[in-house]
Design a protein around this nucleic acid. Structure first.
Length: 620
DNA sequence: GGGGCCAGGTTTTACG
DNA sequence: CGTAAAACCT
């Protein structure tokens, strides 16, 4: 049982004196819901801890002015370090609902935990269970959490109190687990980037609802048309059999019509699903029969449906009262340090194909503003060439020869094919993997021998890649984790399977070679992402220092692409600043704080546009 | 003895 | 309710 006897409701401002006098405090907010920009949402209480096992909980819904001013003093005191769980929620909601700007160093214990071990679900309860003696903190809610709004003070105090207590205990436990290298990664990468992400989280992006509505209507009409058209091909016998729930999304109906039923198409399946070995129904396989009118129609129906449900309908849900979206950028989510964007999940928005414009047109700037994007040119290939010290890649970069063209020339294939080969082989794809890949992507049948030849030619062209792969694998085996140049770690226990000489079963063997490829990919992918984020952080800093905060607003980062909006008259300047942050300031920062010289030219390409559908390249 | 979709994600739907 | 498959992104 959790001892909640020292979680105390604050009555007088003086009850908070120990908090205001502490160097390190934790705090936690309870609100009606998780949506900061929801007008009906409000803060219920705020809890502080400065000693493990104790919490001071201020009930905000009582609206005690005297207490609120004390809370403001605490949160705005630059001299105290504030520890929270899950930035930037607490600081953002305090700013939005109470107008209080949290100042001083803000540290997120969930981030601290993720940097130590990226392989498990991060939430306060898990972290507390793993690192502290405070177990199962959800217990204090007595199994109910949905009605905190009307909960009696006692429950609110316990519920809120345990969170700030757990947060403080996690902080104390986790800081002892940081060695020098992790500390450096945290201090000079994680912390400043998280501060930047918190700052830009309030830079909304306008959505043109008229455009969205009319595109949606157009798609709904198309969807209806394709559905009727597709269904009309299916014979009555099959329709009758499934009449209780006749839908084109049901695999059983499609399979029966395509492959099985006497009155159906009787097609011979060529590709099968991974786990269950059923005839595949995905686009790739269906395209093998692209002459069949039913399949053409079905694929269109699917495309339109895909655009409507996850993209257009979900986008509506993300638009706030002011007509803007405020996407949530997560820094601690993926095992390699790539960011994830949610609400809406814009990093998956279609970019190519005839339907992409239906969603991207609605993401539009307001009058007088323009979007700018800048993406890192061939980021991961360049990083691989640098870290492997591969003479061919480094020379091509020096001579400004496109790396995909270089591969295309060496292997006697097109640039597009070379692109796929580059991305496959730099992360140690096998000849057999390549054979399957070439079949899937280009419908080219290579013999095993031809595939092996391509692989051999590739690695002869870039001779330092294989030795570098071996080095990464052996280092990861030794340490149990791979490490990026800046010090981000990826724990890969499976890489040690079979090293004791034990014969491995197929499954275990697959786990091991998968871990080996991950060991090769992780440091590269991680560094690429970190570099972009450092540049973004420096861009943000530069914007503030030049007094341009009202004219340039950073929006988000999609793996190698930074997106911002700027007033028309500042768009050129914004691009110039960001370009310099990427190619010059970021490597300077990395040299200064990590003592690493980035050994390849960092180049980026800029685009500008009124909406996200029609972005045009610019020569800056 | 050889095995093998390059890696990292989100969201939706159907199904047992 | 968890898993698999599908479709979208870098």
């Amino acid at each position: 049982m959790i001892d909640t006897s020292k979680y105390i409701k604050v009555i007088n401002p003086s009850d908070l004196d120990d908090i205001i006098n502490s160097k390190v405090i934790s705090f936690d907010i309870e609100s009606c819901n998780a949506d900061i920009y929801d007008k009906s949402n409000r803060i219920l209480s705020i809890s502080f801890s400065c000693i493990e096992g104790e919490s001071k909980v201020v009930i905000i819904r009582d609206n005690n002015i005297e207490l609120l001013s004390k809370v403001k003093n605490i949160l705005e005191n630059v001299a105290t370090t504030k520890v929270v769980a899950a930035r930037p929620f607490d600081e953002s909601i305090v700013k939005e609902k109470l107008g209080i700007e949290v100042k001083g160093n803000i540290i997120d214990v969930l981030t601290m935990a993720h940097v130590i071990d990226e392989n498990y679900t991060i939430n306060l309860e898990n972290v507390a269970n793993k690192y502290t003696s405070l177990k199962n903190i959800k217990e204090v809610a007595e199994g109910k959490r949905d009605s905190l709004k009307d909960a009696e003070d006692g429950l609110l105090v316990r519920y809120n109190g345990v969170d700030s207590d757990a947060t403080l205990r996690c902080f104390n436990a986790l800081k002892n687990r940081y060695d020098k290298r992790l500390k450096r990664y945290y201090q000079y990468f994680v912390q400043p980037v998280q501060n930047m992400l918190s700052e830009i989280s309030t830079n909304g992006c306008y959505i043109n609802k008229e455009v969205l509505k009319s595109n949606e209507l157009e798609l709904l009409i198309l969807q209806d048309k394709y559905e009727k058209e597709t269904l009309s091909f299916i014979p009555e016998e099959i329709k009758e059999k499934y009449k209780s729930n006749l839908k084109l999304t049901r695999s059983i109906i499609l399979s029966e019509y395509l492959f099985i039923h006497e009155k159906g198409l009787k097609l011979k399946p060529q590709m099968f699903t991974g786990k269950t070995k059923k005839p595949s129904l995905d686009e790739k396989h269906l395209k093998c029969f692209s002459k069949v009118p039913f399949i053409k129609s079905l694929l269109k129906y699917r495309k339109v449906g895909k655009l409507l449900k996850p993209y257009i309908f979900r986008l509506w849900e993300s638009i706030k009262k002011d007509g803007c979206i405020y996407p949530n950028i997560l820094l601690i989510c993926t095992v390699t340090g790539r960011t994830v964007i949610l609400n809406p999940s814009i990093q998956t928005y279609p970019k190519r194909g005839e339907f992409a414009k239906y969603i991207r047109q609605a993401i539009e700037t307001t009058e007088g503003w323009l979007f700018g994007t800048r993406d890192l040119a061939q980021s991961e290939l360049r990083i691989m060439g640098w870290l492997a010290n591969d003479p061919t890649i480094l020379k091509a970069l020096k001579d400004k020869i496109d790396l995909h063209i270089k591969t295309a020339e060496s292997l006697g294939i097109t640039r597009q094919e070379a692109k796929a080969i580059n991305f496959g082989f730099i992360y140690a794809q096998s000849a057999k993997g390549f054979k399957i890949y070439a079949k899937n992507e280009y419908d080219i049948d290579f013999s095993m021998e031809e595939s092996e030849n391509y692989r051999d030619t590739f690695f002869n062209t870039y001779p330092r890649l294989l030795p570098y792969h071996s080095k990464l694998i052996s280092e990861t085996r030794k340490n149990g984790y791979s490490e990026s140049p800046l010090g981000r770690r990826r724990h890969l226990p499976d890489i040690k399977l079979g090293l004791d000489g034990r014969r491995l079963g197929k499954e275990e063997f697959m786990k091991r070679i998968s871990a080996e490829r991950q060991a090769i990919n992780s440091p590269i992918q991680s560094f690429s992402s970190d570099l972009g984020l450092i540049a973004m952080m420096l861009f943000n800093k530069e914007i503030k220092e030049r007094g341009l905060s009202e004219h340039i607003k950073i929006l988000w980062f999609i793996h190698d692409d930074i997106m911002f909006r700027a007033k028309k008259e500042y768009i050129i300047e914004a691009h110039e600043i960001l370009r310099d942050c990427l190619s010059t300031k970021a490597p300077e920062y990395i040299k200064k704080y990590f003592d690493i010289t980035v050994g390849y030219p960092i180049e980026s390409e800029g685009k500008v546009g009124k909406n996200w559908s029609e972005m045009k390249s610019i020569s800056i």
